[in-house]
Write a protein that binds this DNA or RNA. Structure first.
Length: 771
DNA sequence: ATAGGGTTAG
């Protein structure tokens, strides 16, 4: 009896792979002790079993009982530290092993090299490479693979100053993994209110009509993935250039000198090339791999797909998808999540969903891929729906989940949702994560809470360009141009180079603040000092500013001098400036330009008709309205919405079918009377001329934002700020009217329109004359 | 003993 059990124990010890769970390992451990078989050799074998199933604490406990650990014991602990993301401890043990006089052999270097990669320490990696050559292990298959992996992960450190940021990212990642969950009772920006748990996260999308959802997306916003396509085109040349640089050399050299190569070697070099953006080279290697009689597996495919996504190359992506189907890997959890991401980055969300549906097993990453995919393409409600489904599937949201979903709250301006998520983020200690913090800054700014946005930004330990840009854009959105400029300068002093988005942010700030000289300064410096060619958006910001400042001729010449063909929408901003400054001659000139490049530009027709009406040139106005009808273009209906008690209420202009319409109308009548006493005169100049005067007044009073504001006054406690969002620009009359309303009801009113926030308080507006 | 997927600003 006893001998047979002993034999079994021995057999198990010799076959560590057969043990898969902690209890099995502990049973074996107990039996070893029971039979007093705890020889040095057996204990080391046990240790290697513990480390194999990644039990760090058990491994260490056992390790500490051994007085003179043999090499196997050391190597097990080193391996375990590395796979727990503890490179310092791993390398410390490696040094301990050498110090105790043991000789390193072929199966310790893979873990040690991986630790170098985790530490982002290229110097150490190179020293180790030298050491490996001296002990004659540089032709070992596993060591060679690990060397290639280390170099491909650290090569970029040579090339630029990205080292600091990279180290920061690694640090974030590490702290996140090792940090225990902590509870924080005071919630930043949550006004001390206790936030319900994520389990209670319940977002009611049904209270909004389909029409409203369509409207929300019309707010001046281009889904992020549409930029990716543009950027990928512009980056094409650079990518080719990099692939001829020396960065691939050492990895390639190791690969070519390896006497024996396996699938892992191929996958490692392919993944390495992919990580370093060597597009053509990576694709070439996959073909070459086929020549060596190796078929791409899930590792190969899942490391190539992100590169294809980055290049927005849908045809290559489909090829790979086809390949994964042929290999039976299209439902592999790794391949599928990169497929979802690839399709989303190519703006093919429907295909992403199809891949997602086929998945039988879903982890946090596959959920996040589909959530991020929706959000990046502007499908915010779908993103939120998937997020809730993920919670219901009992998948705990991680840092990635929050940074993916937060933009949805930001763009929908649903502050209650964002706050709820923020509460969860704080309680789980995620708020140090740079992605999350930046998305929170953006969310609070977009939801009108610029103070909280600043608080969070100020508390960030590490800031990258995205964080700065989010904050600068936030200031721009709130008309705080001087703050935005100060931040931009500060960013440069901290050695962070602005990109075209950062310039966009600072130019927007200048434009909203009417700072013409500053705008010129930044516009010129962008190309001169940073080599960034201005895009349409930059031109638009400057010409918009010139137009608003009344420098119409200057703006006209500026647009004519653009190095890329001006779009209809750029001309349209100038046209609206012509309206504000009542310059009909220029308006006609500009209108002709618009119709040349974009004959179906809705905005131009409407603006022109309005300009003629305002000048009482009814005939021309009617002519333009008629041609609008003839072509069949219709004005985008204005729509405003307000959040009251965690519910969103939407209003269309003059929508009498709204359930609250009567109450609003009654309140409005009282209000208008008070306003007129204070000196309010409705500006009806842009309303159709054949409408009665009384009717005109009624029309301007039924503008969507006014309905929403009055609804807010009726339905929220006195003293509370009223926050309204509108899909289009606030019109002149509403701007004036809201000033009066804020004074009469003694409340702060914040209106967000398609480009900015207007803070109305006590009869004034934060944006003054520039809006 | 080695290799792989998802995140923030426009």
């Amino acid at each position: 009896m006893r001998t047979s059990t002993e034999a079994l124990v021995k057999a198990l010890l010799r076959n560590p792979l057969s043990i898969k769970s902690r209890s099995q390992a502990q049973q074996l451990h107990a039996q070893v002790l029971k039979f007093q078989a705890s020889s040095l050799c057996n204990l080391s074998l046990l240790l290697s079993i513990y480390s194999h199933i990644n039990l760090l604490h058990d491994s260490l406990r056992l390790f500490n009982t051994i007085h003179f650990p043999p090499a196997l014991a050391w190597k097990s602990v080193i391996r375990c530290y590395t796979s727990h993301g503890l490179p310092h401890q791993s390398l410390g043990s490696f040094i301990g092993m050498l110090a105790s006089g043991l000789y390193p052999d072929h199966n310790v270097f893979p873990s040690v090299l991986k630790s170098c990669a985790l530490l982002m320490d290229l110097n150490l990696g190179e020293s180790l490479h030298g050491y490996i050559i001296r002990v004659g292990l540089d032709f070992d298959l596993y060591t060679g693979n690990a060397l290639m992996n280390m170099y491909s992960k650290l090569r970029f450190l040579e090339e630029s100053g990205r080292q600091r940021l990279g180290a920061g990212e690694v640090f974030d990642e590490m702290t996140e993994r090792t940090r225990s969950v902590r509870t924080v009772s005071v919630l930043v920006g949550n006004e001390g209110r206790k936030v319900s748990d994520m389990e209670a996260f319940n977002y009611d999308v049904s209270c909004r009509s389909r029409e409203f959802e369509a409207q929300v997306l019309e707010i001046d916003y281009k889904p992020r993935n549409q930029y990716r396509e543009l950027e990928a085109c512009n980056l094409g040349q650079q990518i080719k250039d990099i692939s001829h640089s020396k960065s691939e050399d050492s990895v390639r050299k190791i690969f070519e000198m390896m006497p024996e190569k396996d699938l892992v070697s191929w996958n490692t070099i392919i993944a390495g090339n992919a990580r370093n953006g060597l597009y053509e080279e990576t694709l070439r290697m996959i073909r070459e791999m086929g020549g060596a009689n190796l078929k791409p597996d899930s590792f190969t495919l899942s490391s190539v797909l992100p590169l294809i996504a980055e290049n927005v190359d849908i045809s290559r992506g489909k090829e790979i998808h086809g390949c994964s189907i042929r290999q039976g890997l299209d439902a592999d959890i790794y391949v599928a999540s990169s497929l979802i991401d690839m399709y989303a980055k190519c703006t093919r969300v429907a295909d992403s969903c199809r891949v997602f549906t086929l998945l039988t097993e879903r982890d946090g990453i596959s959920w996040n891929s589909i959530i991020a995919g929706c959000v990046q393409n502007g499908l915010f409600d779908e993103g939120l729906r998937f997020f809730r489904q993920m919670l219901m599937a009992k998948i705990k949201p991680k840092s990635y989940s929050f940074s993916s979903i937060m933009p949805a709250c930001a763009h929908l301006t649903t502050l209650h949702l964002g706050k709820q998520l923020h509460g969860y983020i704080t309680r789980n200690g995620f708020d140090e994560n740079i992605f999350i913090a930046s998305s929170l800054v953006d969310m609070y700014a977009k939801c009108g809470n610029i103070r909280t946005a600043k608080q969070i930004f100020d508390r960030m330990r590490l800031r990258d360009m995205v964080s700065w840009t989010a904050m600068i854009m936030g200031c721009a959105l709130h008309g705080q141009a001087p703050d935005a400029i100060e931040l931009f300068e500060q960013m440069e002093t901290e050695g962070i180079k602005p990109n075209h988005v950062a310039f966009m942010a600072v130019l927007t700030a200048c434009s909203h603040g009417g700072l013409v000289d500053e705008a010129w300064k930044y516009f010129n410096s962008m190309t001169r000092d940073f080599g960034i060619a201005p895009g349409v958006e930059h031109y638009a910001a400057v010409s918009d500013l010139l137009g608003r400042a009344g420098r119409l001729e200057e703006a006209y010449d500026f647009i004519c001098g653009m190095h890329i063909g001006p779009t209809g929408s750029i001309w349209a901003t100038l046209l609206s400036a012509c309206r504000v400054h009542k310059n009909i001659d220029m308006a006609e000139k500009v209108a002709n330009r618009i119709l040349e490049v974009d004959p179906n530009n809705t905005g131009a027709y409407i603006l022109l008709a309005n300009i003629y009406s305002a000048a009482r040139r009814w005939k021309e106005a009617a002519k333009w309205r008629a041609s609008m009808r003839r072509i069949g273009i219709r004005k985008t209906p204005a729509c405003s919405w307000i959040e009251v008690k965690n519910k969103v209420y939407a209003f269309m202009a003059g929508d009498e079918s709204h359930p609250c319409y009567e109450k609003i109308r009654e309140a409005m009548e009282v209000l208008v009377e008070l306003m007129e006493k204070e000196g309010y005169v409705p500006d009806t100049s842009e309303v159709h001329h054949d409408v009665e005067e009384e009717q005109k007044k009624y029309l301007v009073c039924s503008h969507s934002e006014r309905l929403a504001i009055v609804f807010g006054i009726i339905n929220t406690p006195a003293g509370m700020t009223i926050r309204v969002t509108k899909n289009l620009r606030v019109c002149t009359d509403c701007h004036t009217a809201t000033k009066f309303i804020s004074k009469i009801v003694g409340r702060e009113i914040v209106v967000r329109d398609n480009s900015r926030f207007h803070h109305f308080k006590n009869g004034t507006c934060s944006c003054g004359d520039y809006w």
